[in-house]
Design a protein around this nucleic acid. Sequence first.
DNA 1: TATGAATGAGGCTTCATTCAT
DNA 2: GATGAATGAAGCCTCATTCAT
Lengths: 212, 212, 212, 212
Amino acid sequence: MTQEPATGRWSRRKQTRPSEIIEAALDLFVERGFAATKIEDIAKRAGVTRGTPYLYFASKEELFKAVIREGLLPRIEVGEALVRDFNGPATALLEEVVRFSWQAIAKTKLAGIAKLVMAEAGNFPDVAKYYHDEVVHRGQNLVMYTLEYGVKRGEFRPMDIDYTMRVVIAPIMMAMIWQHSLGVCINESIDDDRFLDSYLSLLKCGLCQRID
Amino acid sequence: MTQEPATGRWSRRKQTRPSEIIEAALDLFVERGFAATKIEDIAKRAGVTRGTPYLYFASKEELFKAVIREGLLPRIEVGEALVRDFNGPATALLEEVVRFSWQAIAKTKLAGIAKLVMAEAGNFPDVAKYYHDEVVHRGQNLVMYTLEYGVKRGEFRPMDIDYTMRVVIAPIMMAMIWQHSLGVCINESIDDDRFLDSYLSLLKCGLCQRID
Amino acid sequence: MTQEPATGRWSRRKQTRPSEIIEAALDLFVERGFAATKIEDIAKRAGVTRGTPYLYFASKEELFKAVIREGLLPRIEVGEALVRDFNGPATALLEEVVRFSWQAIAKTKLAGIAKLVMAEAGNFPDVAKYYHDEVVHRGQNLVMYTLEYGVKRGEFRPMDIDYTMRVVIAPIMMAMIWQHSLGVCINESIDDDRFLDSYLSLLKCGLCQRID
Amino acid sequence: MTQEPATGRWSRRKQTRPSEIIEAALDLFVERGFAATKIEDIAKRAGVTRGTPYLYFASKEELFKAVIREGLLPRIEVGEALVRDFNGPATALLEEVVRFSWQAIAKTKLAGIAKLVMAEAGNFPDVAKYYHDEVVHRGQNLVMYTLEYGVKRGEFRPMDIDYTMRVVIAPIMMAMIWQHSLGVCINESIDDDRFLDSYLSLLKCGLCQRID
DNA sequence: TATGAATGAGGCTTCATTCAT
DNA sequence: GATGAATGAAGCCTCATTCAT
């Protein structure tokens, strides 16, 4: 069924099995939600059978965690590097951070994970804690750093960093959620440019030092 | 818990039963999610037995709809009236709308419904459609009206209303979602005043007509 | 809902309630079968509510028995009288018996009872016994009498009365069953004249004294 | 009862399981009727647990269809072959058809299926259609062919084939039904020879060309 | 390493029956 | 007599998980 690489039809590719399963799980979790996704469907999409996922993941919940780990962490790390190495106007950094989140996360399947966790983490405290520490916290720091950077440079007005960060992050999060919940049913998609323009305009005006 | 007008099983409460069941369902759906909530638990919390909910609601899904109908629609209507009757500066209207959404929805259990629908409506297209038409659409109109009002009065800069509306709504939505998913697990709550202040500051600066 | 006779809207007609319920039960049992018919539907069709049938019948099963009793017994009695009083050629008696069964039973709702008992009596030994003794046995006697009558008169050939009776009865029974089971789904109805003609031709030729 | 090729739960019998389940279902459906038979009981009798039947049959109704398919269709096919290959007097063919139906169907558990369908197909239109097309229709054709064959050869008198077929079939059908409904309760069984003799005598006399 | 038949707890829903009013 | 809200046992079906092969 699945395409085997050139090493011959029966090379079992032990190393790649787990990630194929994670990939399949990501797709299906995002499409249907955690509870509504059957292990068997994941197995099928990964080209294996019912029992195989259990060779690599102790339970459906562990598989859920692995999906988060493999999917989001690498992107977060790229984002962190991007901020760390930046030099220039805060407005530019802000725009870079926003566009990165948009391109590298919000427009990909990974956005579905965010929605997924919001949706179902409540029933899996383990997962929630893990996600919070490894994803949310680091993502928030990224934005807070940007805001502080702008304030320090005198580009942004003084502000309550913690909470402004939440307000700043929200539209991106919501865009991710919309694309993977109601949006799908109602068949309404988002125009990237119009969204980013409206968003960035509001941010730039809203954060900047007023001269009046 | 609930007041019994008579004793025990035969207390004849056709009028109050449905809302008791809806109330119980709201609590549990919000606590655990739709799929993870058992009808029997709803029944128990409402002080009845397994069969009783089915006297009033044809299925779990219909009960879900009723929860939305009874919970959110009245608030939406109040919001609509509030906007309809308003006269004065757009900034004040905006603030009123925001504070109303916050107090009357975001800080109550109803916020959980929003989260709930985001999370699970994907698997229940019926519910999704209903929620979109009756809640999302009307809520969005409310905000769009406010923005247009400000633009017409020259208080707000010209803008892409459709998309700015999304950006404006997002922080409230996220606050609602936050409180009912990760927030719960991480045990981190939001300081109302700091959140609203940061949010309104950003909005007011971000939307207003720049004089420069 | 139901038409009340002229004695005033609230004359409760105690005497007629049970037969109205039986009538409704007959209709529905015949339409849908015993197990598939809900007491509530019977009540509704009889113009009363869920609890009322239990005032007159201890259980659904007892109601079943009552339906048989009230529906079939009177017709059987008419048939018995018809045979008892007959004088004339056996062929004519046979035809009379056949046409009576056809008109007074097979073409009416009562045919449904026969089908009903065949179908479900197995699960209700009580009912089965009752039906056998009161309906089957007496019906069979009626036919056996007719055959004996013909043999005695030298019109019919000597025969194994017990078993020929079964063969003779079968087509009528089957016609009743067809009309109330597959026939309904497949939407195939029986042409009375063609059926009776074919049936009677076979019987007359098949039973008569051969001269060869 | 059943031969276990290996021991216990893990005996891997994908090939034999379905027929074991069908067999068990046939027994119980015939004994108790379709609606009154619980899947769990079928499972138990087949030596498996609740979930197993669903590995092979999508629903109780599909299992019912399978019972028909596996049970009756092969016999029908044998009957068709029998008629197709026949050469000789029509009376002999008729007798062969009758005796075959008797031995291969009416005297076996399969007779119960016929009764079952009559009894309950009304509530399962799918099954009814399937049964009608695959069993009733083909069975009827078999008999109609026989009658036409006799008429063509001048052995049988001219007749209304469609309806005479119904009359001819009825006694066999009734015998099948009888054995699986009232007969069981009343504990009255049929003497094969006496029944077939009476039946065939009636048919032969009733259908033949009279010389008078 | 991989399979996939089998398990069995658990959820949704139905409906005959009860009984306070 | 009549009502109809409430009960609760019971049935169908799903699916995460196990484990002999």
